[in-house]
Every structure is written in structure tokens, then in C-alpha cells.
């Protein structure tokens, strides 16, 4: 291993995890605490996220829903696989 760069197999590192959960229902939590639940359409290296059939939860209470939603990556705290 050189300069501490991790070497990991498929499905283990962040990129592998993302490709594993594309198309599945996910929970996305933002740094503000707002939660989006929807079907994960795509993610990029900035953690920008495209969701389908999205429900928005503020303080655990459902506020709105969106057919299609784009979340800018800098706001994302985590992406959780729902299944």
C-alpha cells in the first residue's frame, strides 16, 4: 500500500455501495436535519443526488412530495439504504 490509499473490493467502498443501491428506496439526510425518502436515480462524485417519488420530512413530519428531485451534494450528511 502506497501513501495510505485504501485498496478495496467492489461493493465495499463508497462508489461500490452507491452502484449497489441505485434504483432502490433510500433515505437521504441533510445537514439541516431535513430527510428525503425516495427512489435513488443517480449520484455523482459530489454526492449530488437525483431522487424519484420523493417525500420530504421536517422534524420527522411529512411535509411535501416531489415527483423528481435534485439534491445538491454539499448539503448531504448521509445516504441510507432503506431495504
Amino acid at each position: 500500500m502506497e501513501n495510505g490509499t485504501p485498496t478495496q473490493g467492489e461493493g465495499k467502498d463508497p462508489a461500490g455501495f452507491l452502484s449497489e443501491i441505485i434504483g432502490n428506496p433510500v433515505t437521504v439526510k441533510l445537514n439541516s436535519g431535513v430527510v428525503y425518502k425516495g427512489e435513488l436515480q443517480s449520484v455523482d462524485g459530489y454526492m449530488n443526488i437525483a431522487l424519484e417519488k420523493t417525500d420530504e420530512y421536517v422534524n420527522g413530519v411529512k411535509r411535501r412530495n416531489y415527483g423528481d428531485a435534485f439534491v445538491r451534494g454539499n448539503n448531504v450528511m448521509y445516504i441510507s439504504a432503506d431495504s
Binding site: 454526492m47 454539499n74 448531504v76 450528511m77 445516504i79 441510507s80 439504504a81
Partner: peptide
């Protein structure tokens, strides 16, 4: 509790 997550390293 959460089963499996990708946690943003930024924070």
C-alpha cells in the same frame, strides 16, 4: 438505527 449508510466525509 440504520442498516447501511454512506456518510459524507465533509463534516
Amino acid at each position: 438505527k440504520l442498516k447501511k449508510i454512506l456518510l459524507n466525509g465533509n463534516n
